[in-house]
């Protein structure tokens, strides 16, 4: 069941159970007047041009059935991580487990990019072990290096570029996540499956 809300006069906001299935269906339909489709955690934004018949479009998208993932094993990106982050100890303390166990649980989960936001190429990864849920820092760091592997609330992420940030740092990867010379500059796009693998420094 899709609930459609107007988001100003140039977009609709869809509340859906299957965000990625709805994005797939919308991309496949390529509806006239639709200019951009953006995933959120539980919503999909459908932007449209000035000429679109917004009420007709709203009725149309309300009736769309989410599209299943293509058959077969989904492509998975494995990121090699050196677990040397400054917040390992804090996370271990909050979770009441050892640092080694924090790392084991972070490596042990299957993740999927729910949506991007915060900054270019910053992917919110769903699938974090519930025991590792820790609130973000009350006062963000002014500088988090590119490649930092981090967690906050129910999410994990990798900082694609150096930026300020309030997430808890577990380690870092050397894999580039953001490349403006590539046709798709972000390595982690919505729907992508991700695993972390521990490597020694």
């Amino acid at each position: 069941m899709t609930l459609v809300r107007k988001c100003g006069d140039r977009a609709l906001l869809l509340e859906v159970d299957d965000v990625h299935g709805m994005v797939r269906a919308l991309e496949a339909l390529d509806l006239p007047g639709v200019t951009e489709i953006v995933a959120g955690a539980r919503t999909v934004l459908v932007s449209h041009g000035a000429d679109a018949d917004v009420n007709a479009l709203a009725r149309r998208v309300a009736g769309i059935t989410p599209m299943a993932e293509p058959e077969g094993d989904p492509a998975t990106i494995t990121l090699e991580v050196i677990y040397d982050g400054d917040d390992l100890g804090v996370v271990a303390g909050v979770a009441g487990i050892s640092v080694e166990e924090v790392i084991a649980r972070h490596v042990g989960a299957d993740y999927q990019v729910a949506f991007c936001g915060f900054s270019p190429g910053f992917a919110y990864l769903r699938g974090l072990d519930p025991s590792l849920v820790v609130p973000r820092l009350a006062s963000p760091r002014t500088r988090v290096p590119a490649g930092s592997v981090a967690i906050a609330d129910t999410w994990s992420a990798v900082y694609p570029r150096e930026s300020p940030g309030g997430w808890r740092l577990l380690g870092h990867t050397r894999t580039p996540l953001w490349d403006l010379t590539s046709p798709v500059p972000a390595l982690l796009t919505p729907g992508t499956r991700v695993r972390f693998a521990r490597i020694a420094s």
């Binding site: 988001c7 140039r10 959120g40 955690a41």
Partner: peptide
């Protein structure tokens, strides 16, 4: 609110 897409003018 779970994070959701926003637009200019929101």
């Amino acid at each position: 609110l779970p994070s959701e897409p926003v637009v200019s003018g929101a």
